[in-house]
Design a protein around this nucleic acid. Structure first.
Length: 235
DNA sequence: GAGGAGATCGTCT
DNA sequence: GACGATCTCCTCT
């Protein structure tokens, strides 16, 4: 994969790249994984409450983690924009299974998008994870994205690491072959979601983006002011 | 900085 | 054969 060149930056700028509040592996491993009951609710509630939670990837002996700053709810059979709307297929079968599992699909010939199943089994609701704010493993994420090292990554470009569902999945090495159907409530898995007690100050609800059906529904949730939120000017 | 076009391939009909 | 819950690059202002 060719290296994508980002703007150079100086040392003073680099220190500010330690985005949000960087966490240690010890802190991440102490954070309890979200329980099945958390996901066994409607997708809108889960989407709103997932903001601020930690998405953690174990990659060999390494941990990568980011705080969820943007997501979207999809309501299954009730939602024309949802993959489950047209019924069960081989691709979306995970959506019809138990809550708290990863639904990963391939899109536009290049990218993977990562969802968490929710609602009681059979209802096929899910939450699309759209962006995280890196809290551990920043350099590994930059490498996974094919960007230059953090010593050369500009502050104005740092959001390119994990802002957007395709970028976020690539940064954490999430693929359909590796992660589709994985239980995200289980720390013994190599991908899970945990809570460390952080609560976002302000959450904004907006219409979902990148879809052509049910575009008016305000089921996209973002942490207000967070620089890793995708879209134009993070809106 | 903003907007548009093209790339790319799995999935579904 | 058509479409798509995206991203990057290029052009214009």
């Amino acid at each position: 994969m060719p290296t994508r060149h980002l703007k150079a930056k100086d040392e003073s700028e680099r220190s500010s790249l330690e985005v949000g509040t960087p966490l240690t592996a010890r802190v991440l491993l102490a954070a309890p994984p979200l329980r099945r009951e958390f996901f066994n609710r409607d997708a809108v509630t889960v989407g709103r409450e997932l903001l601020g939670k930690l998405l953690i990837r174990r990659d060999g002996r390494r941990l990568l983690a980011g705080r969820i700053v943007e997501d979207e709810a999809y309501l299954g059979a009730l939602d024309p924009a949802a993959h489950a709307y047209s019924g069960r297929t081989l691709r979306n079968a995970v959506l019809f299974g138990p809550a708290g599992h990863a639904y990963v699909y391939f899109i536009y010939g290049n990218y993977y998008c990562t969802n968490v199943t929710c609602m009681p089994e059979g209802d096929a609701g899910c939450v699309l994870l759209r962006a995280i704010e890196p809290v551990l493993g920043l350099d590994a994420m930059i490498q996974a994205r094919g960007l230059e090292s953090s010593s050369q990554t500009g502050i104005s470009q740092i959001r390119l690491i994990s802002s957007g569902p395709g970028r976020m999945s690539e940064a954490l090495g999430i693929t359909r072959a590796r992660d589709n159907g994985k239980d995200l409530t289980e720390r013994r898995s190599d991908l899970w979601i945990a809570a460390d007690g952080y609560r976002p100050e302000r959450v904004i609800e907006t219409p979902r983006i990148g879809i052509t059906k049910a575009v008016q529904e305000p089921w996209r949730f973002v942490i207000a002011g967070n620089r890793f939120v995708s879209g134009k000017r993070g809106s």
